[in-house]
Design a protein around this nucleic acid. Structure first.
Lengths: 184, 184
DNA sequence: TTGAAAACTGGCCGAGCGGTCAGGAACTAT
DNA sequence: ATAGTTCCTGACCGCTCGGCCAGTTTTCAA
């Protein structure tokens, strides 16, 4: 009990870290379990000893960002529409910057996410965020614009090294406000 | 010479048509040569008789939209910046609507497009479009906003059946104008 | 009618994938 | 030292993929 990192956790963490890097770099589908194992310095079988299957690795990689999104949606949902929109824009941009690398992973999965039951909650939360960003109006055009905004933001968070966090933050903030809060 | 559709062209067309539909439906990577062959009512070997390899099918499927984009970029490039931007916005939206299905194919490939030499020209043309949409200013933020706009538009063109062409057109037009021509 | 050219195909290949399993290695409490 | 538990692995399985090739069928001009 000298080290508080039992062997189990140490390996798990290493696998997750390398998997995250690879998913960002090459996408989820293009990354094989063998790739992850090699990068983590263990065997493919070890990866599957720590995680149920390949999807299990993805779930674990996405978990921190998922809970952060849940928290944001929960907080904003408790507010009146206008304030909820303001909070959603600001916090969503922060989230996007914080997890900028992971976002390209989501992008890679947009086609198949719907068919993975493990992520139905994540998808639902994304939809709720759309509603909040649209300002609570039922207006279909504004809802679609909000989706448009999310797509733009997701796409723009790729290419990790090219922009500082501050630059990315400014870009996303400007774009979201132009789209979602157009001057009357 | 009675029919002006020699056997060769007839089969080629059928393959391309079915390949396009499948690429739109399931994405390029998730579509196998066997899928295409079955849908086209021929054998996998026949597909490879008409096209050099799987990438060759993709190139052919993308060709009409590619030339349309080239034409747009060429025309706009000949104009002064402000008019070029206006033309680029309008024509690009039309293009996106016309080829709305194909766009999800591009989306599916964004990660790997850069590494396929067959598409370097397409990528370069996309970059030039970005510059035109940004209004010709060297301003980095506006350039990034233009990229943001393209990403948003690409993402929004998925899910073919959900919107009419007119609705999609209005959505893209509104979004692009909010992003790229913000009131001073 | 015929024979060469074009169009097409079944069968095969090597590679890579996600996933399983029996058993070896390392750690730990006694 | 020893026995039990946890951690790890090489070998293997079934499957699908893109691509190739020898050979058959179809087309079409002479």
């Amino acid at each position: 009990m000298a080290t508080n990192t039992p062997v189990r956790e140490r390996t798990r963490r290493e696998i997750l870290q390398q998997a995250m890097a690879l998913f960002q770099e090459k996408g989820y589908n293009a990354t094989s379990l063998q790739d992850i194992a090699t990068a983590a310095g263990c065997s493919k079988a070890t990866v599957l000893y720590h995680f149920s299957d390949k999807t299990g690795v993805l779930v674990a990689v996405l978990e921190p960002s998922h809970t952060a999104l849940s928290k944001l949606v929960a907080e904003a949902s408790a507010l009146p529409a206008a304030e909820a929109q303001e909070l959603a824009i600001g916090r969503f941009v922060e989230l996007a910057v914080e997890f900028r690398g992971l976002i390209s992973v989501l992008q890679d999965l947009f086609g198949s996410l719907g068919e993975m039951p493990e992520f139905s909650e994540l998808v639902a939360e994304g939809l709720r965020l759309t509603g909040l960003l649209a300002g609570g109006t039922g207006n279909q055009l504004e809802l679609d614009i909000a989706k448009f905004a999310i797509n733009g933001l997701l796409g723009e968070c790729r290419h990790p090294g090219e922009r500082t966090d501050a630059e990315l933050h400014e870009l996303c903030d400007t774009a979201l406000r132009r789209l979602l809060r157009p001057p009357a």
